[in-house]
Design a protein around this nucleic acid. Structure first.
Lengths: 155, 155
DNA sequence: ATTCGTGCAAATGCTTTGCACCCAC
DNA sequence: GTGGGTGCAAAGCATTTGCACGAAT
């Protein structure tokens, strides 16, 4: 299943002449079983329940490592703090709808947009490595909420 | 030309029961004549040459006001610090190509992508307010640079 | 007069780093 | 034994905020 990630992780450890370590492996194991988006602090809180003596510096260091390996990707979603998600070979590339009312994040995948980007790359002689498309608006639930109770629309 | 922005600025001042002020107007004037993307500090440095006693807090406060008015838009472009650009009615919505080698930012506009997003909105019953598409890669100049001098590709 | 604007410096919040000690090979 | 790993606390950095004073209506 996630052997590709494990291999990439091992390669990354070697490539940077790092060692294997209990804490780092623990964080990696936890992350690859994660399907949602998380902040550094959320991951730290989760790790604390497994290993109460873990420090937040280790979480920061490991996340940075995994981002550099291409195992994690960072999004800002219009916030100051970063959100991280696993980039796996067995998952299609996807983009995000972000509800500005409740913060919900919905993933979607669209081939038309992917293809159009390739064309843009060619047009500008730009060699594309990656992209992020973030669509902001109101999700279905929040639209219903607002139409029921228009006074509490914001804040 | 930019009367629409001036009007929106005036409306925003009134709507928030603020007063007119020399410094705020100065920053607004400067910003609407700006065509590129700038950080808070870059704007602060520019304002210092016009008004050496201006404080960076005023620049932060004014930028926040203009973002709230919809006159400025913030992008992160994969960096920690925000970049700001003017959102004018006389400019088409556009997205960005960001060169990860030299930091150059290229604007582009693509109707296929805009249309596809509308369709995604309908599909997910999501009411779209705005979006940001950022494409990361290497610009033409940097590709040539790298092919000439492969050893200095990064850092 | 009252209310808002502003510079300054302190505070904040997230992230990184230096250091001493720990562990794996 | 050597070199990386880690917690802790301090440092960094961008940004926000409290406050006293100045400016606009």
């Amino acid at each position: 299943m996630r052997t590709d990630l494990a291999k990439r992780y091992q390669r990354c450890i070697k490539a940077n002449s790092l060692k294997s370590s209990k804490r780092r492996d623990l964080i990696f194991e936890h992350i690859i079983n994660t399907t949602d988006h998380f902040t550094v602090d959320q991951l730290y809180q989760r790790m604390l329940t497994v290993d109460p003596s873990i420090g937040i510096a280790t979480v920061y260091r490991t996340i940075r490592l995994l981002v550099d390996c291409g195992i994690l990707m960072e999004h800002t979603f219009g916030e100051k703090r970063g959100f991280f998600e696993v980039v796996a070979a067995d998952r299609q590339h996807h983009d995000h709808l972000i509800c500005t009312s409740c913060g919900r994040i919905i993933e979607f995948q669209n081939n038309v947009i992917e293809a159009a980007q390739q064309q843009i790359g060619q047009q500008y002689h730009f060699s594309i490595e990656s992209h992020k498309l973030e669509i902001y608006g109101t999700c279905q639930q929040c639209q219903q909420q607002i139409s029921k109770n228009p006074m509490s629309a914001d804040q």
